[in-house]
Simulated scan of single mutants.
Amino acid sequence: MRRTARLATAAVASLALAFPVAAVTATSASAAPANGSATAADASTDVLARKAKKKIKLKKAKPGTHYGLAGNKITAQVRGKGKVTFTVNGTKVKKKIKKGKASFRLPAELGPGTYKVKAKYKKSKGTIKTIVWDSALNVNEANFTISLSTPSYDYPDMVGTVKFKGKTPNTGYVDIYRDGKNKGGSGSPNYCCMDGVGEGGAFSFSGSYFLGKVAENGPGTYQYRAFYTPTSSFDEYIYSQWITVTVVP
């Protein structure tokens, strides 16, 4: 009996010693995948960091520009010296890097539409989209000759229409400025006159109103431009071709 009890006690002790070892082994085995996952995450982060370094950050000066006017300005931010190659509509242009930036202005000849501008510097690349809106301010006549000996009420009218961002507006304003200098708005010494835009985007300047004011400058040849803005804030506008007025005695 005593021998049997001793054997039973020895067996229990043996089992007690075996279980802790197995537990340690299991814990060690389960920790291995965790270490492996951390290594994979670090590698993934490193790959993303390398890809980020190969991208050029591009910015555009405006959300979009108007057809026939100055194109949008695209700026690339890079580290290094040399030139950045810009590509738009199949045409490549190289611009020198100054203080970590290189800028490219899209040509005014681009027709209405959305364009993808690409930039490349060594192995780094970047892409940005910009839009050219279908906008226009047209007048019925761009060349006038008037005489001081003729009453201003006999001067011809100047009429026109406006298209803004592909649509025909029924509101807004058309202002005319000598030499196209519109800085200062109606307070500018170059301001001539204004008319509101009505149905169909139409506007009209009577002969005595526009040309009559030009005649006040005396004999000579003068140039003007008409500007359309949708709001009185004049935050955004388009303008016409040059309007030439010749005043004779």
Score class of each variant (00 low, 15 high):
residue 45 T to Q: 13
residue 171 T to G: 14
residue 109 E to K: 12
residue 103 S to A: 12
residue 93 V to Y: 01
residue 52 A to S: 07
residue 225 R to K: 12
residue 55 K to F: 11
residue 24 V to R: 00
residue 14 S to M: 12
residue 229 T to E: 07
residue 135 S to H: 07
residue 215 A to N: 04
residue 217 N to Q: 12
residue 223 Q to R: 10
residue 67 Y to I: 09
residue 168 T to H: 04
residue 120 K to A: 13
residue 150 T to N: 11
residue 219 P to K: 13
residue 27 T to H: 05
residue 153 Y to I: 09
residue 217 N to G: 02
residue 122 K to S: 15
residue 19 F to R: 09
residue 128 I to W: 09
residue 72 N to A: 05
residue 62 K to W: 09
residue 205 F to T: 08
residue 74 I to S: 02
residue 95 K to C: 01
residue 96 K to F: 01
residue 29 A to N: 10
residue 174 V to Q: 01
residue 28 S to I: 00
residue 183 K to F: 13
residue 7 L to N: 14
residue 86 F to E: 01
residue 94 K to T: 02
residue 48 L to W: 07
residue 21 V to E: 00
residue 24 V to G: 01
residue 142 A to Y: 15
residue 160 G to L: 04
residue 232 S to H: 01
residue 208 S to R: 15
residue 68 G to F: 03
residue 181 K to T: 12
residue 102 A to W: 00
residue 163 K to A: 09
residue 54 K to S: 15
residue 159 V to H: 06
residue 248 V to K: 15
residue 38 A to R: 10
residue 92 K to Q: 15
residue 190 N to P: 02
residue 121 Y to N: 02
residue 17 L to F: 11
residue 115 Y to W: 15
residue 91 T to W: 09
residue 247 V to K: 03
residue 79 R to M: 04
residue 6 R to H: 08
residue 166 G to D: 03
residue 6 R to I: 12
residue 35 N to H: 13
residue 246 T to V: 02
residue 166 G to M: 03
residue 12 V to E: 13
residue 23 A to T: 08
residue 240 S to M: 03
residue 118 K to S: 15
residue 12 V to Y: 10
residue 51 K to Q: 11
residue 20 P to F: 00
residue 8 A to L: 13
residue 166 G to R: 09
residue 157 D to H: 06
residue 126 G to T: 09
residue 125 K to Q: 14
residue 124 S to I: 04
residue 40 A to C: 05
residue 123 K to W: 07
residue 146 I to W: 06
residue 38 A to E: 10
residue 234 F to G: 01
residue 126 G to V: 07
residue 84 V to P: 00
residue 72 N to H: 01
residue 116 K to H: 09
residue 113 G to V: 05
residue 215 A to G: 06
residue 135 S to L: 08
residue 23 A to E: 02
residue 45 T to S: 10
residue 142 A to V: 13
residue 171 T to C: 01
residue 234 F to H: 10
residue 24 V to H: 01
residue 161 T to L: 08
residue 202 A to M: 09
residue 26 A to E: 00
